[in-house]
Amino acid sequence: MTHSSSPTTGLLFALVSASLYGFNIVYARIASFAGASGSAIVVYRVFLMLVLVGIVAAVMRGSLKAAREERGTLILLGVATAFVGICYLSSVAYIPVTVAAVVFYTFPILIVLASPFVEGTKLTPSLLGVVAVATLGVALVVGPAFGDLDWRGLALAFGASIATAIQFFAAARCRRTGVMAKTFWIHVLVLPTAALISLAAGQLAPPSSLAAAPFAVTMTIGGYVFGFVLQFLALGRITAVAAGIIYCTEPVVAAIASALILDEVLSPLQMAGGALVLGAIMANVVLEQRRPKGAPLVPIAD
């Protein structure tokens, strides 16, 4: 695969992945209405991911061996992935979900600001402008009303944002280890973490509890599984900066899906926010296509 075609494929993978995550959130909410615990779904979907990867690896005789030089990066990636879920899930115990979402989606800004130090990316006015527009769009879509907010919730949501930025950078540098092996070892680290959180919250229900909303649970787990695989296929083809901006579509898709599936009405302000995010994504695609064809996707560290 050439460098010229790889970024385009990566952008498409990232866009589909973000959309699946957006739908995943909506169906997780439907499942919760039926009594299926969200934390239990997390545990069982991670367990299912491990089983599926094991089956696919056995059938295809694929290797689950991590590249020796990337094992440290994989550990960082697994820990960061676990912290994304831990911090984001915990933040909503102290602040409204919409506020947590806005704070969480500051991670594209963090990626751009850190990219000169991590990837050697040059910060251009056009790139900074795209990030600013995308972030504003996300804020308009989720439309929170800020009031008296608990600092613990804000700190946890911002912690999830930092962990996500680390996740994107680590995944973009983990290119020699196959997606199958990468997915397996990440979830080996995530599973015990998710299980401990569920036990501590008293919500680790038996698998039979998921039968309360079979379709919604299936859509939630399916959206996560396919979205996760596509996310790491994308991060092997595009920069963390480009991926961070593309993933701003997730809350937009969630808002639209909520309106269509849950009959939640979108306000004109939310529609305007969605238009800003989509405009920023199109601008980012143009900037990505202008990147020199011979330039590496991620500079190799000395």
Rank of each mutant, 00 (worst) to 15 (best):
V97P: 08
V84H: 05
L110N: 12
I109E: 06
S126V: 10
V103L: 12
V84G: 04
E119M: 11
P125A: 15
S91G: 06
Y94V: 13
G129C: 07
Y94W: 15
V103P: 08
G120E: 12
V118Y: 11
F104I: 00
F83V: 15
L113D: 07
S126G: 01
V118R: 00
L110A: 10
V79Y: 13
A82D: 04
L123W: 09
E119N: 15
G129R: 02
V99T: 07
A100R: 03
A80Q: 11
V130L: 07
V118N: 06
I109A: 14
L127V: 01
I111G: 09
P116S: 09
T98S: 09
A100K: 06
T81A: 13
V103N: 08
V102Y: 00
L89W: 12
T121Y: 09
P108E: 09
T124G: 12
E119H: 08
G120D: 10
A114H: 10
T124D: 13
E119F: 14
K122L: 04
F117R: 04
L77R: 05
F117Y: 14
V79N: 02
P108F: 05
A93F: 01
L123V: 12
A82I: 11
V99I: 08
V118M: 05
L76A: 13
C87A: 12
L89Y: 15
L127I: 02
Y94F: 13
L77I: 00
Y94S: 15
A100L: 11
V133M: 09
L77S: 02
P108T: 04
Y105V: 03
S90P: 04
P96K: 01
Y88I: 10
V130P: 01
L76Q: 12
V92T: 08
V79D: 11
F107E: 13
V92I: 10
A80F: 14
V84Y: 03
G120F: 11
A100D: 05
G120W: 05
L77Y: 00
T106M: 02
A100P: 00
F117A: 13
V102K: 01
P108Y: 08
C87P: 04
Y105P: 06
V97M: 03
G120T: 04
P125H: 08
F117G: 11
L77K: 02
L76N: 06
Y105W: 03
T124V: 10
P116E: 06
A100T: 05
I109D: 02
V84L: 13
A101R: 06
I86V: 14
T106I: 02
L77T: 01
S126K: 15
K122T: 09
A114R: 02
E119I: 09
A101V: 14
A80W: 12
I95L: 14
G78E: 03
T81G: 10
L77A: 02
A82H: 08
A82K: 05
I109P: 03
P116A: 07
T121E: 08
L127Y: 00
I95M: 08
I109H: 01
G120H: 05
S126Y: 13
G85V: 10
V99D: 00
P96W: 01
A100I: 01
V92Q: 10
T124I: 12
A82G: 03
V92L: 03
F83L: 15
Y94M: 10
F104W: 00
F83S: 14
L127F: 00
L76G: 15
F107S: 12
L128K: 07
I109S: 09
G85S: 13
L89F: 15
V133K: 04
A100Q: 07
V131T: 11
L113Y: 07
P116I: 06
L110F: 14
T98Q: 09
I86T: 07
A80K: 02
